[in-house]
Design a protein around this nucleic acid. Structure first.
Lengths: 183, 183
DNA sequence: CATAAAAACCCATGCTATCCCATGCACTCC
DNA sequence: GGAGTGCATGGGATAGCATGGGTTTTTATG
């Protein structure tokens, strides 16, 4: 198996233009960050991986030029998102009782484990060994779009996981109510 | 285990705004102070430790060039943050009933115990013995990002703590409603 | 006021993450 | 159908950062 290309993906700045597009604040609110599709890229001997261009486009314009990654606590995968999401998370946590246990736990679980991975000139990031190990990634890394966030898996592991998920979904037919635009 | 590098973290960028408190979430103004990830650095024989570069970057531009540290009263750790946050904390405490017991306790627990640790030319600080002892730090110090603040632990002690926190979080599925961007 | 200890200041060093340039495939546009 | 461009990939050069240790200035002490 190898890299699949051009399968469209994230929605960044309206037109398929890539440049740095940039405008974060669309007139009515937040910039749309959407990660779609799956991309499998190679991890070179320096530990670098190219973040799929569409994902990069979705992240364009955020305060930090790169991704934030941390170990998923349910799966053997790496969770990824942009810095803006973390900032929002921080705000949310700040609203919890100042020295409460819940707050402590969340902070140690999420922020302590989060790594900021800056893009190099070519849009690659270095996967910290700790994260790579947790996901069992060595040669290849699969970037999985999940809407507002994405995950990074060892390709084969993900394939297995996906099959299972699909089977489960078919089993109890998961449903979802669509949010109204202004809700 | 030893020092992990480059996992970048905080965002300093913005304007060297100094004021106090303020706004955390203006659209594109406010400086974003976010401490992420974990960095383990060595404490040299003079008691000096390098504050991770990304953390320094997050603190850049504040009125006091260094960090503020005090003993965590729930854990064997040192709480750390920038001087700006202390100002905000002061405001919060000011809102408590004047002369109330809680106010008294907080004031003496936090402010009386707080140390201002200035950076030296290389971005290091000296850990006051009192604090180091409380956290059981001797050789190495782990800087733990917690969003708006950070903590300093003895590496092994933190590893244990993190495992427990992780387990607890997974257990009662601690969830947190994410704030909407404009909320 | 003199002396010792501690803190602030400086300069040096090694590692590695970051920057920069080069290559080749694949899809797209003309 | 041919050439151009976007994007993933490699590898070498450079600068940032953690770390050590010496020297001067400040603070505490007798």
């Amino acid at each position: 198996m190898h890299s699949q290309r051009g399968t469209a993906a994230a929605i960044g700045g309206g037109t398929p233009r890539k440049g740095e597009a940039g405008e974060h604040s669309s007139v009515l609110g937040a910039k749309v960050v959407l990660f779609l599709s799956t991309f499998i890229n190679k991890v070179d001997r320096k530990g670098r991986v190219s973040v799929p261009a569409p994902f990069r486009a979705a992240l364009a314009g955020q305060v930090f030029n790169g991704i934030v990654a941390f170990r998923s606590y349910r799966q053997a995968a790496i969770e990824g998102c942009g810095i803006d999401r973390m900032a929002r998370l921080s705000d949310s946590i700040d609203e919890l009782e100042l020295f409460s246990e819940a707050r402590d736990d969340l902070a140690s679980t999420i922020f302590a484990d989060a790594h900021q991975l800056p893009f190099d000139g070519e849009g690659r990031v270095i996967l910290p060994p700790l994260l790579a190990e947790h996901a069992g990634i060595t040669e290849m890394a699969a970037f999985i779009g999940r809407g507002a966030t994405f995950q990074i898996w060892e390709p084969d592991a993900f394939a297995t996981h996906q099959d299972e998920a699909r089977a489960r979904t078919r089993a109890h037919g998961a449903t979802l109510r669509l949010r109204r635009p202004d809700e």
